[in-house]
Nucleic acid binder design. Structure first.
Length: 616
RNA sequence: GCGCCUGUAGCUCAGUUGGAUAGAGCAACGGACUUCUAAUCCGUGGGUCGCGGGUUCGAUUCCUGCCAGGCGCGCCA
């Protein structure tokens, strides 16, 4: 069940590209000719047009032309199923249609194709000339656009709301997964051209906050030696006792003498603020920050809840029954109607959520993404109903449900339960394995899939640990460039680049390394002739596509998979091939290659919010 | 009972929006450091894609019915 973004992400024929400079974090639009795939698509479309024009093909509504990268390298660099899609309407065999297309392609062949073949049931496979791949690689590398993606968002506003844990206790690992997914997805969306806004919704009002206040209040009384009965529906965690102690330190013992109803609101606010501050720090420590911490209480204070309900009522989508106000969500895809205002006048959380959703759209977001724990999935239909109630297109709102995390230490599973208070805090995990490993691990699986998080593995410094594997690849490239510098191979304006300068470039301007490599802008990449080297170049050039795909499908895990693949290809290459060798020509183009890999690893890790160590 | 998610190698999981002979890592076994980092690499074996139907040129992918596991089904939050 993937989100349909086609309506929202128009692919223009010559999309402008974006580069995000990781040092400043600001994106700038850079024009260039697009990817190899784009160029091939153009050729193919032209061939189809020509065949239709001269009557070789007669289909009235030709399907969109799609190119994909075949799994099997024997099938070339790209393949299309166009002939098979046309075959039905043409009343010809797919292979015959393929031949017709190829004939027209031949006339338009602009010298980028090495070989075409019709294969299998009617695929057309294309192999792009090696020197064209190399030119492409060199051009993009020197222009600094290896990591540039298409501008899919075109500056439109999108909001990603995530974590949004209630301020009634510290964040646990499950929240951590949501935090990583939301943060990285936001990074990716920004990279592909959306104007991204990160938001955390705080449920800072209602019965639960009152219960929270009472919990601290009772612990406070206990600290004063009063015997109280601590009810089971109050928050049991030790942190409540600590906060009670803090209140006593700051405000003394006098609060015990005032009536409960008078002081509980104070306890509630203090406790919620305190916990929220802890959450904020934990997230900051985890590399996650928000553009806005949105308070539910502020919605109520501004009267937005009433306004939203009024609007719903005016649309005839609400009714009163048994003294309560009901929303006709069942008319809008929910399985039943839901109460917004309870008998007695209290609003439900649903009412606030309706108002919050309305507020988001009123702030001008064209797309809204909510990231929730999978245990809230039952809530999706009623919020979707609200989207429709306010006449917004259903595709403009998307909930990403993140499945549970199971923590383990090797074989041993660490059982968790919120009820008994035995959940493991995110902060503990981060302290134990570090931010890098935690973030990476949370993104190694699809959101849909439950995640096994092995603390032992996350700490391991070996190839088994995907984080280290990818980071190590980066460190190794740095080491190669360091060696090149020591041998005096890196030059700028006739001068040898100093070791410290190289270190600086590795740290801050990896892009500029291309400018100091042997051969400079005229470097001849014809020496990259091993299948492995050509494969690496293609893999590098596939990066923008990968990032765009991640953004379109809202699947950030693709990035971790891809980086592991790139790292794997590089490690294999490294072990077989000497980069800095006695052969100046080979040395030059191999240095160019690994510098390209460096850009990709750097950019990908930056998107993940994972560090790229220069030595390990 | 109803709804959502999941089911792919012994284990943990990918699988390019429906493509061609389904991949990777771990685990097992055997190899590679006088070299730019062995935190790495190379080789070997391993499959009824939960099961049955359907849609079509073509299904791990879409639809449907079962089976198994997880989660959720309040005028709770």
């Amino acid at each position: 069940m993937r989100p349909s973004w086609s309506k929202w992400s128009p692919i223009t024929t010559s999309p402008s590209r974006i580069t995000a400079s990781s040092s400043t974090g600001c994106a700038q639009i850079v024009r260039n000719e697009g990817t190899m795939k784009d160029r091939l698509l153009e050729l193919l479309r032209a061939a189809l047009q020509e065949a239709l024009r001269n009557g070789s093909l007669r289909t009235l509504n030709p399907p969109p032309v799609i190119l994909e990268r075949p799994r099997d390298p024997a099938h070339g660099d790209f393949s299309t199923n166009l002939a098979m899609l046309l075959a039905g309407a043409e009343k010809k065999s797919p292979r015959a249609v393929a031949e017709i297309l190829l004939r027209h392609l031949g006339e338009k062949n602009s010298g980028i194709i090495e070989r075409t073949q019709v294969a299998g049931p009617g695929f057309i496979n294309f192999t792009v000339r090696r020197d064209v791949w190399m030119q492409e690689f060199r051009r993009k590398a020197l222009a600094g656009t290896l990591c540039a993606t298409a501008n899919l968002g075109q500056g439109r506003k999108i909001q990603v709301e995530f974590v949004s844990a209630n301020p009634t206790g510290p964040l646990h690992v499950g929240h951590g997964r949501g935090a990583a997914v939301g943060d990285v997805l936001a990074n990716i969306l920004k990279k592909v051209g959306w104007d991204v806004f990160r938001e955390y919704y705080i449920n800072d009002t209602g019965k639960q906050i009152e219960t929270l206040g009472r919990s601290t209040y009772l612990r406070y009384l206990e600290l004063l030696g009063r015997s109280v009965e601590f009810p089971p529906d109050c928050y049991q965690g030790d942190y409540i006792v600590e906060i009670a102690r803090e209140i006593r330190n700051r405000h003394g013992d006098g609060l015990a003498d005032k009536p409960e109803s008078e002081v509980v609101p104070f306890f509630a606010k203090f406790t919620a603020d305190w916990i929220l501050e802890g959450i904020r720090k934990d997230l900051e420590n985890f590399g996650v920050s928000f553009d806005c911490w949105f308070s539910e209480a502020s919605l109520h204070a501004r009267g937005e809840v009433e306004q939203a309900l009024e609007e719903i009522r005016k649309k005839g989508l609400a009714y009163e029954q048994d003294g309560a106000l009901w929303v006709k969500s069942s008319d809008l895809g929910d399985e039943k109607d839901r109460v917004a205002v309870r008998q007695g006048g209290e609003t439900t959380y649903y009412a606030a959520d309706i108002a919050y959703l309305r507020d988001k759209y009123r702030r001008g977001f064209e797309r809204i993404i909510d990231i929730w724990g999978a245990d809230h999935h039952g809530y999706v239909p009623r919020v979707n109903a609200a989207v429709q109630a306010f006449d917004h297109p259903p595709e403009s709102f998307h909930v990403l449900l993140v499945q549970l995390v199971t923590l383990r230490r090797g074989r041993e599973v660490i059982s968790m339960s919120t009820r008994s208070g035995t959940f493991v805090e995110l902060a503990e995990v981060v302290r134990e394995v570090g931010t890098d490993a935690a973030r990476f691990f949370f993104l190694t699986r699809r959101c849909d899939s439950p995640l096994d998080f092995d603390l032992e593995l996350a700490k391991q410094k070996s190839a088994d640990n995907p984080v280290f594997y990818v980071q190590y690849a980066h460190a190794r490239v740095c080491s190669i460039l360091r060696t090149a510098a020591e041998r005096g191979l890196l030059r700028q304006g006739g001068e040898t680049v100093s070791a410290s300068r190289v270190e600086e470039m590795l740290a801050q301007q990896p892009q500029e390394l291309f400018g100091v490599l042997p051969g400079g802008a005229e470097v001849d990449l014809a020496g990259l002739e091993e299948a492995e080297e050509v494969g690496l170049v293609k893999e590098i050039l596939a990066y923008p596509d990968l990032v765009e795909g991640s953004g379109e499908t809202l699947e950030p895990h693709r990035l971790t998979c891809y980086l592991q693949e790139v790292a794997g290809l590089f490690h294999g290459y490294y072990n077989r091939t000497r980069v800095v060798s006695e052969d100046p020509g080979k040395t030059a183009c191999r240095l160019f290659l690994v510098t390209g890999i460096l850009q990709i690893l750097r950019d990908g890790l930056a998107l993940l919010g994972v560090s790229a160590p220069r030595s390990m």
